[in-house]
Structures are given as C-alpha cells and as structure tokens.
Design a protein around this nucleic acid. Sequence first.
DNA 1: ATAGTTTTTGAGAGCGCTCCCAAAAAGCGG
DNA 2: CCGCTTTTTGGGAGCGCTCTCAAAAACTAT
Lengths: 335, 335
Amino acid sequence: MSPTLEDVARIAGVSRSTVSRVVNNHPSVRPEVRERVWRAVRESGYQPHAVARSLVTNRTHILGVLIPEMVTTLFTDPFFPLLLRGATEACNAHKYHLMLSLFNDPASRDEMYARVLGNGYLDGVVVASASSSDPLIPRLLHDGIPFVSVGRHPDHRVHYVDVDNVGGARMAVEHLIRLGHRRIATITGRMDMTAGQSRLEGYRQTLEAHGIPVSPELIAEGDFSEEGGRIAMERLLPARPTAVFVASDMMAMGAMKAIREAGLRVPDDIAVVGFDDLSVASLVEPPLTTIRQPVGRLGVMAVEMLIGLLEGTITSPQHVVLPVQLILRASCGSL
Amino acid sequence: MSPTLEDVARIAGVSRSTVSRVVNNHPSVRPEVRERVWRAVRESGYQPHAVARSLVTNRTHILGVLIPEMVTTLFTDPFFPLLLRGATEACNAHKYHLMLSLFNDPASRDEMYARVLGNGYLDGVVVASASSSDPLIPRLLHDGIPFVSVGRHPDHRVHYVDVDNVGGARMAVEHLIRLGHRRIATITGRMDMTAGQSRLEGYRQTLEAHGIPVSPELIAEGDFSEEGGRIAMERLLPARPTAVFVASDMMAMGAMKAIREAGLRVPDDIAVVGFDDLSVASLVEPPLTTIRQPVGRLGVMAVEMLIGLLEGTITSPQHVVLPVQLILRASCGSL
DNA sequence: ATAGTTTTTGAGAGCGCTCCCAAAAAGCGG
DNA sequence: CCGCTTTTTGGGAGCGCTCTCAAAAACTAT
C-alpha cells in the first residue's frame, strides 16, 4: 500500500497534523521541521490520498463537462474536440481534473443526471448545451450546482461563454455586400440552437443596416448537416441569389454541391461564405471563405470561469463573448 | 446538506448498517424492513456519497483516458473524438465515470503522471498512445496500474485493442493490384507510430504476395499531415507511379493536391487510396477511396476490457484486433 | 414451553485526511 | 531566571461509508 500521512509522520518523527500542515503549506511550522518532513515525504514517495482529502474538504477538484445527447452526433465535427482540449488544458493549468459525460441516451437522462451530479464527485460543471430548450440548465440552476454554459443562455443568472455568432454573421454578410452583392441568401442552422438563431439574427441586422429588404424566399432553414445544406440550397436556387451566407461549413459543403449540380459555379455565379472554419473548408475546391471561432479559448474560458466561481473570485453573473474572424478564401469571389 | 445513511436510518427506524445493506443489495434483510428502508431513501432523496464510499472500498469507478502530448495536435481529426465517444458510452453502460487527461505539456509529464495516477482517483486507465516509444506504458506496467492500450504494443503483458492496420493496408493495395496497377507507391505515416509501421507492413506484404518488387523509390515517409502528404507525393512523382496508397486521408488530401499541381489527374493518371475515412474523404472531388476503421468500437472495447480487468473477469493478457473496411469511391478509378 | 439453530440487526472500528483546541515549546522583557 | 506572550505541535473528533462481529430476534424441533 502507498504510504499515509501517519507513515510520513513516523519517519519524520512528528505528528500526523504537522505533516498535514507541511503538505498543505500552512505557515506555522518551524523551517527545520518543515525540511525534515519534506525529506520524509520524498523518501516515502508519499502522495496525498485525494479521496480521503475530498471526504473532509468536500471538494474533489474534479470538473464535469456535460454534453447533452443531441449534440453528440456532431461529435465528428471539431467543435467538441477543440472545446475539450481547451477545457482540459485549463484544468491542467489549475490542477483540476476533468470528467466527461455525454448524455447520449435520452431515456436514461434522469438516471445519468443523478449519477453524475448527485454522487458528490463533481465540484462544478461546464455545460455544452447547444439547444436553448435543453432542460438541463434550469435543473442545474434549481439544484444549485455551480456551472458555466458554453453558449449564450437567456436566463441572466447563467454564467456563460460564447463566440460572437451575431458578429460573425454580420462580418460575413457585410463582406458580401462590400463585394457588391444585393441578393444575398442564407441557409440557417437549427433554429432550436442559439448559434442558429444568432447567425440568422446577424444576417438580418446587416441587411437592414444596409437598407436591403429581408426576403423570406432568400432564407432556408438547414440543420447544420451537409445533406441539409444541399436541400436548403436547392430550395434557394429558384430565387436566384448571387451570394449565400451558410451558417455552417458542413452545410456549405452541401450547398456548393447543389450549386455545382445545378450547373452553376462558385464563386462566379454564386458566392458562398460559411461559418466554423472546419479543416475541410481549406481543403475543398474552391476553398471556402468562412468565419473562424476561437473554440479552444471557449473551453479555457469556461473552465476558468467555473473555477473562479468555485473559489469565490467570481460572484456576479458573467457573460463572455469571444470575437470571431473572417477567413478570406476563394469561394466568396474576393480573391 | 444532502442526507446521509444515518439520516435515512433514523427515518426508517433502523441502523445505519441496515440501510447500507439495503442500498447495496445485501441479502440478509427482512423484506418488510427492506421496503421500509427504500421508502425512507426515496423520501429523503438519499444518494450514496461516492467519495465516502470510495475511501473504504478503495474503488472510485472512475476510469482515466490518457492521451499523450504528441497526439493532441491531431485532436482535430475525428479519431480521438470518436474514441472518446465510444469510451464514454461504454462507461455509461457500466456505470463508470470517465476522466480525460491530455498529457500536452512534455515538460510537466512527470508532475501530470503523479497528479493523475498517484492520487487514487482512478481505478484504471485507457492509454491512447500512438507512439510505440512512449515511456508511458512501461511506467504504468512498472507501477502496476491496470490499463488497456489503444494501439498494439510489443510488450505481451500489455492488454490492447487495435484496428487491423496491416489488413487495411493489404485490402487497399490488393484492390489497386486487382485494378491492374503494378507501379504502386505508398506514402507512409510517421514511422514512430505503430499505425504508420503496420500500414507500411501491409503494403509490403501485399506486393510481395503478388511478386511485385518493393522499390524504395516508390516509398515516401509522411507525417500524417496534409502538408507532409503533398511533399511526399512530390518526391514520388518522378518515379511515375500509376497508383498510390496513402496511409492517411489527411495526407491523401495533400497528395491529390500535389498530383493536380503536377498537371496530372486522379484517378486517370494516378489512382489514390487513403486510410481513416475522415468526413473530408467523401466531400472532396474526386471522393476518396479509403479504409474505414471502427474507432468507436475501439473505445468501447478498450473500456470493457479495462472493466473486465478491474472486476477480475479477465486475467490473461488480451489482444483484440478489429477488422476494417474498404470504402470504394472515385479516387481509385474503380467506379 | 425450552433449547438449539439460523437469520437478522446494530454497534464499533476504521478508511486517510483536515481542523479545532489545548498542551508544549520557544521567545522575551525585566 | 521567572512569568508572560507567542509560536509550534500533537491529540481527538469526525467527514460518510463499509464490514466484521457479536447480540438480538426469529424460527425449528423436541
């Protein structure tokens, strides 16, 4: 068995309490004793037993990342990987651990919730809930569990980090207008997701700001999938847009396919701008102009905000919106 | 505070021990008492305190997934996401939790190792170590930590799951030979990764099996990146291959770009087969023929093997190799 | 009904740690 | 060198649970 405090104490010739104090950097230990204890710690290879410690401190230093079911299908797109990576790095940096929970089975949600959140393993959670109607957030709020949402949430008590979806859409459409386009269509994301809503909102705002009427025939709802993008584009073609702002790169792939299949060319006949900057965006022909989001930062910020919450350095509700970036490539016709 | 065993005991009018027995399904409790206790549990909303339980049972039901640094850069490719997804699902199914650790900073590896593995939070780990020279596995072996490796490992004591890289490469090259190709080049992966080694091995074996000489001028080493694939292809072009087996889809993207830039056409001048079946494979022009791996299954199997190890149902070293699948698309010229 | 057997129950210890409190040691002024 | 304050140290309790063991209760057979 691995050595305990008591073992170290025996080696150093002091009491359990003193070793505890040394290990936790409490001030009142004579330097000479402190040194002796550290030697004993090294000699015995002592590592504090986190579980025992947690039992008394009521803190595990484990943070949960909850990903509700509907989005796990999107797991192949790099959003969650990058988010996780950022979150993990932030955890490492602050000496926290990260527990990953995918709420994949809707049937067992309640059981999952109880198992993940009720057993005392988690100090707090980061919720990557794409859907604005997800019941998870109200529940966390009700249960008083410290959490940070990745993605804007209407309830002002919710701490969240998000990317500037409205601003990104605005940049994209603004760019198309600058290139002289007036008949600008859009393929929206899922309208039950805040990202979908915001990106449409940005599209609307920009047209209005330029006095261009927002026409329903130039708006088609997609579902963030390639297939959805293709179908939406087919519905838009009769309206003869000269440009289209697609709310995700995946859908943009489908849209470009539909455009090609209709015998039209990108960007000559229809300019295309996407959103996300997936790796595929730079790999296709023509390379896709798109909006890049700082997804890794999002993960870092979420974790740091959560830690701030847990350690009491943050008290009032925090709402952080990170800037996005227009990546110019050939598909918009500006190159 | 949430109710404890003692609270439930008081409500049910029995002792702490009896409640413990009921909650843990120990047999010797009178049915009538058992019922009364369950009622008290429901009434109080009791949830066992996992940390307290762990302290005495010495089991946390938390499994770690360790991803060593060098591969975190590859985190944007869907391998790790899919692996994680499979692993998480298997954990859910067996009522385990999953802790994610990226060993991203080489400098702090030792500190990370101690922090993640030494504190008693983990019952065992799944190691996704792509590199065969990674010091992590010998260390886990030495420390006697239960673990399963994702990816073959030379030490026979290591339990592992892997996809059939050799077989996949063989299927790819076999297919090209069947299409009449004789001058078949290959772009290898990183040769310090077992996947890279095995895929080259499969290439070699197949050529030899068909009596085709393995020529060094038809072999170029890549690094699994798009750029690496492009450079490797440029080096291969002077040897005038009619087909190329590329050890990853990402490199295949680069290779196709190099082929295009040389004024040649895929598949007419050079047939291309990739490996991985990334989503981009089906999105490019021409769509890429490739080898699909059951990555999700890999995650599931790894976790289940680890749980088997922990619960004593598995004792002898297990080596599982999952079959892969040839996905025919246009880039090999067979469509 | 009684003694013996089996089943069910409760009390106690202890997992490894932190934290409080009181005792011991050290420092200090006269 | 003594009484004082201040610092340092050790012992005890307790976090919520499991598990052993012995006592109590419930049966069984006579």
